[in-house]
Design a protein around this nucleic acid. Structure first.
Lengths: 133, 133
DNA sequence: GTGGTGCTTCCCATCCTGGCAAGGTCAATC
DNA sequence: GATTGACCTTGCCAGGATGGGAAGCACCAC
């Protein structure tokens, strides 16, 4: 199976497959005489695993750890769970930061009449002299 | 005023001040004979404006637009409001994506006993053969 | 004049992804 | 057998915002 077929089969672009290989997430693929990468069922499983972890927002480093745990049949499920919950907490912190921004923006916009007049509390707030930091 | 003082006065690091200059968000600063950048009150105002916009999650490109509107005394407040609301919508989409991830992770973790046994629904889910995409 | 601090430019790294270019390969069609 | 189009290879560039560091020069206080 060529890289393009593997890409279609797993939902990971050919580009990213090469990159994951470079990053060490997947072993260097076997090659044909002409140098084409060749993928087997186990490779596809690994790529799908990576894609799902990526869809959950895990970074490359964490995916590497998850893969190691996946391959380690003596792993403790507590290790995996801890990783997952720590990651969820990171994502939640990101959400909180975004929501603060959203709240501030919506608050400013609510006070802006938003017509053709130049008067604009949004810009006034961005330009105000105080430096709350 | 030197770049370091301007940085302390505005909360924008010297590194970023140089970068904003390179990106065209601020005009090239005046220089002393020795090549040191010199900042005045108007520059500090502009840097503070940039910092606040950045704190609201606006990107460099949008900050440029906001600065243009700020300087345009004939602007329509509707233009600013539209930008702000569009940006809030983008941030909300980002939040929604993150929350989907968080929900999925927490759901998986809730079904993982998380002790020393290797049994782990989190890994099982990442490894499952279906390819929902 | 000497030391410490601050400024200058330039390069590197992050994190993941896409795009493009130049060249080789494969398979199918004429 | 030759052409063609799709596919593969490597490698470089880009983004968005930020920090780190190195090498060299400037400034100020003592």
């Amino acid at each position: 199976m060529n890289i393009g077929q593997a890409a279609r089969a797993t939902g990971v672009s050919a580009k990213m497959i090469r990159w994951y290989e470079e990053q060490g997430l997947i072993p260097g693929a076997a090659r044909t005489g002409a140098g084409y990468r060749v993928y087997g069922a186990a490779d596809l499983d690994r790529l799908r695993f990576i894609r799902r972890a990526r869809d959950l927002g895990f970074g490359v480093k964490q995916i590497g750890e998850l893969l190691a745990l996946w391959g380690d049949h003596a792993r403790a499920s507590g290790d995996v769970k801890r990783m997952a919950l720590e990651h969820a907490a990171v994502l939640e912190a990101r959400v909180a930061a975004l929501q603060e921004m959203i709240g501030a923006i919506r608050h400013l916009a609510a006070n802006c009449h938003g017509d053709a007049r130049p008067d604009c509390p949004i810009l006034d707030n961005l330009a105000k002299p105080e430096t709350p930091r």
